[in-house]
């Protein structure tokens, strides 16, 4: 079976949807962050696939590299914030942190 562009796109769309689903449903803040990673990596797959299956310059691979680095930086900062949340709230359940509302 030939692997075509569409296969990659289906995978990335699924990844994106799982990511979004995870962000919305998981209580644990760390799992929410994982969901965000999934979204970013879905985009990465897109970049790489489009780059591979088009005859233009391979700009998508560069983009993917950038995104990987950024994802790392983002998780570092997000985890630091989650740590701080744990210090002040003594739990990291996202749906219980809702003092600021309305």
């Amino acid at each position: 079976m030939n692997i075509t562009l569409n296969h990659f796109l289906i995978v990335s769309s699924l990844l994106f949807s799982f990511g979004l689903y995870g962000i919305v449903t998981r209580k644990n803040a760390v799992m929410v962050l994982m969901g965000i990673e999934l979204i970013l990596n879905a985009a990465n797959i897109n970049f790489l696939a489009f780059s591979r299956y088009s005859n233009s310059i391979d700009f998508g691979q560069v983009a993917a590299l950038f995104v990987i680095i950024l994802a790392a930086a983002e998780s570092a900062i997000a985890l630091a914030i989650v740590l701080n949340i744990y210090k002040t709230f003594v739990n990291i359940n996202v749906d219980e942190i809702d003092k600021l509302r309305e």
């Binding site: 979004l20 962000i23 919305v24 449903t25 600021l100 309305e102």
Partner: peptide, 17 residues
């Protein structure tokens, strides 16, 4: 309308989507 602002970030994301 201010009831939309539930304070839960996950609800916000659902609403955005």
């Amino acid at each position: 309308v201010r009831k939309f602002q539930t304070g839960k970030v996950q609800t916000y994301i659902v609403m955005v989507a």
